[in-house]
């Protein structure tokens, strides 16, 4: 069932140092990704329900943890970056943060070990949503001046206008959503590949020793992979949170720039 195991079973642990599947793409061929995505949404809904169903004025540990995460988004991101108008966007920013974070954390859940944010569809969808809000709010707030200000920031000499206009147009309207997408996507893909290869290899080498297929000395390669894998695992805990935070923060920054013209 698990493509990682199927692919790695073919590896020659007596000669290779890492059990790489025949095709690294196999690491990403999970037909159950939509199920994981749905599971993520259900987990978020349940956490919110149980934390805030009957919120207490003096919160317990669980409620306090969820509250502090919500405050992180509503205060440190929405209010601090966008300002008082940011309250309107809090539900969207909260959804971004929790959806991405839970998606990232799925990498670390035993039995799933797959971050659905490492699938192009998810970061792309979310980045395009932010982009649509950015453009719609900009037009709503500033009319067509929004585009003019966007491609010709105030103070650009006339002679440079065509060049600056082209650069700004491409960087703001085209590259921005893709940079947002790729930052999240690439981080999670890299994390997933590293964890899958390191912990997968560790497992095969150590099982090889137990099965008597390879010597203990050679099997110690597996122990080394295991140590490195655990370190990367802990690093991914940080990365998962950080990438969710960065994506949400940048979305807020983009929304802010469409609400408040630069001049």
């Amino acid at each position: 069932m698990d493509p990682l195991i199927l692919a790695s079973e073919e590896c020659d642990i007596a000669r290779e140092v890492v059990c790489v599947p025949a095709n690294v793409l196999d690491l990403f061929e999970f037909n159950s990704v939509p199920i994981f995505i749905g599971l993520g949404a259900v987990i978020i809904a349940l956490v919110m329900y149980f934390a805030l169903r009957k919120p207490k004025l003096v919160p317990g540990k669980f409620q306090a943890s969820v509250e502090s995460l919500i405050s992180l988004v509503s205060d440190s991101i929405a209010r601090d970056v966008i300002g008082p108008e940011g309250v309107k966007y809090v539900p969207y920013l909260l959804s971004l943060f929790f959806f991405i974070w839970v998606g990232n954390l799925m990498e670390l859940v035993p039995g799933i070990n797959f971050p659905f944010t490492s699938r192009m569809a998810i970061p792309l969808t979310l980045a395009l949503l932010t982009w649509v809000i950015f453009v719609v709010e900009g037009i709503r707030k500033q009319g067509l001046h929004f585009f003019l200000d966007l491609i010709w920031p105030p103070g650009v000499p006339v002679a440079l206008k065509p060049l600056v206009g082209l650069i700004e147009f491409v960087s703001t309207l085209i590259v921005r959503p893709f940079s947002l997408t790729v930052r999240l996507f690439a981080n999670l893909v890299a994390g997933h590949v590293m964890l899958a290869l390191l912990l997968g290899s560790a497992g095969f080498f150590l099982l090889g020793v137990l099965g008597g297929d390879i010597s203990v000395l050679r099997g110690s390669i597996g122990a080394a992979w295991f140590v490195v894998g655990v370190a990367i695992f802990m690093f991914e805990v940080l990365v998962g949170f950080l990438q969710a935070y960065i994506f949400t923060l940048l979305s807020a920054v983009y929304i802010e720039s469409s609400l408040h013209p630069q001049h």
Binding site: V33, P34, I37, G38, G40, A41, I44, A45, S95, F98, F99, F116, R119, M120, A121, I122, T125, L126, L129
Partner: peptide, 12 residues
């Protein structure tokens, strides 16, 4: 994945 992502995000 696109459909699942959009629906799940809509729920969230």
């Amino acid at each position: 994945e696109l459909v699942g992502g959009v629906l799940a995000f809509a729920v969230v």
